[in-house]
Simulated assay, not measured.
Amino acid sequence: MCDLTGRVAIISGAASGIGAATARTFARAGADVVLGWFPGDPHDVEQVRDSVAAAGRQVVVHELDVSSTASVDAFARSAIDSFGRIDVVVANAGIARTVPSLELTDQAWNQVVEVNLLGVWRCFRAALPYMQEAGYGRLLATSSVAGTVQCWTEHAHYTAAKAGIVGLVRSLAIEFGKHGITVNVVAPGVIESPQSLDPINSLGAEGVAAAGRGSPVGRVGRPEDIASLYLYLASEAASFMNGQLLVMDGGRSLVVSD
């Protein structure tokens, strides 16, 4: 049922982690993919490109800075120029920065919100006219358990942005459902990825391992776990799913800490 044959997906933050896994998963399900790659990202987007091509799908790599409207608009346009359509947006690009709240300047706040919240909106806004004309679309965003069902100390700007995505998704779901466009958001828990393994701005390897030990399922998430959920949401199987926040954390948010 989760078949994306003939669909075109654009994915931000596609060089590693959840974005890369989603690109590979979508390609195996039949989608052609445009990979949004931030030039400052040290991860090799060419490996992702090769994986999509190996699945027999067409793939475009496009430089993308989600804090720039012009960059995001060009990203969406590249899908239209290459494939003539945009069926699915996965607004996944995000950053985390550890800053004690009383040291959180406007500049530091804005940097994270620009990427994590406004970046989602820019990706959605750029695709919506094409989707509305086609009468079909799937808008998907990556939030976090931090800011939705849990908190994260010294990350007030991050949690505020991730919470804001939920409000954005719900509003757009109501506004654009009549055009055949559904909008949903996934809140991952701890996923073993380059971001979570960062010992300065996130948990680091030891923190990730501890989160796994504290999970009801005995492990942290893998990028492929989230990619599988995105595949469902992008498919016809989820055609009646709209405006929803789906938490995927192995049940960790249900655990009461001592």
Rank of each mutant, 00 (worst) to 15 (best):
R24N: 04
R138H: 01
I11E: 08
L168P: 05
I80R: 13
I95P: 10
A205R: 15
A74C: 04
N92H: 12
S257G: 01
V112F: 14
D87R: 09
D258K: 14
A31D: 04
A146V: 02
R122H: 14
L246T: 10
R252H: 12
M241I: 09
S68T: 01
S71G: 05
P216N: 14
R28K: 14
S253I: 06
V34Q: 07
T105D: 10
V45R: 10
T148C: 04
S67H: 07
Q244I: 04
L197W: 13
I165V: 15
L128V: 15
T153N: 09
S71A: 10
A55C: 08
A173C: 06
A161V: 09
A29S: 11
A74K: 11
I181V: 15
T153Q: 10
R77C: 03
V190G: 05
V169M: 03
L128R: 07
E224C: 01
E154Q: 15
G251E: 11
H179Q: 13
A9K: 12
S257N: 10
A74N: 08
E175A: 14
A108K: 15
R77V: 00
G177Y: 12
G221F: 09
G17K: 14
V45L: 07
A23M: 06
R252E: 09
P42G: 02
A21Y: 13
V208H: 10
N110K: 13
S82L: 04
N201P: 13
G40Q: 13
S144T: 01
I181F: 12
V183G: 02
G119D: 05
R77T: 10
A173T: 01
Y158A: 08
E175D: 14
D41K: 09
L246I: 15
G164A: 12
L4G: 01
R7P: 00
A55H: 05
L35M: 12
A21Q: 12
S82V: 01
A76K: 07
A96Q: 15
A134V: 00
P129T: 03
F75P: 04
A127R: 11
S101P: 05
Q244V: 07
M241E: 02
V166Y: 00
G189K: 14
G167T: 11
G6L: 05
F83A: 02
G243E: 01
I165D: 02
A108V: 06
V52T: 02
D87M: 06
L197Y: 14
V186H: 06
D32W: 03
S78W: 03
R122S: 05
L172M: 15
E63V: 03
I165H: 05
Y158L: 09
E175P: 11
L254Y: 08
L233Y: 01
L231R: 04
D44M: 02
V208M: 12
A126P: 04
Y158V: 06
I181E: 03
R213C: 01
E46Y: 11
G204M: 06
G189M: 11
T142D: 01
S193N: 14
A76V: 04
Q244L: 00
A27N: 06
G147N: 07
R122Y: 09
A227M: 07
R97A: 13
S16M: 14
R57A: 00
Q111R: 15
L104Y: 10
I10N: 05
S78E: 07
A126Y: 06
